[in-house]
Amino acid sequence: MRVNGKEVILSKNQKLVDFLAINQYDIRKIAIECNGEILPKSTYQEVILNNEDRLEIVRFVGGG
């Protein structure tokens, strides 16, 4: 699959929440677009990723 433009190979389908945890994303501080659509936070637990998916993950840091 593609994550922020880079190719990532999944050896098997993976739960989104597991992918986020392994890559140290804090669910409270991100936004995700999956295949061109915003992914509602309420669906994160159910989503299963496969190698066809295109993800854009934005990580917010503090300051303003």
């Binding site: 409270r28 501080k29 991100i30 915003i38 509602p40």
Partner: peptide
């Protein structure tokens, strides 16, 4: 979006886009 805290940024961006 011009908040300070990352949780607030994420909340507004996610809710608005949805």
């Amino acid at each position: 979006e011009a908040f300070d805290k990352p949780e607030m940024k994420s909340m507004l961006v996610n809710t608005a886009l949805e």
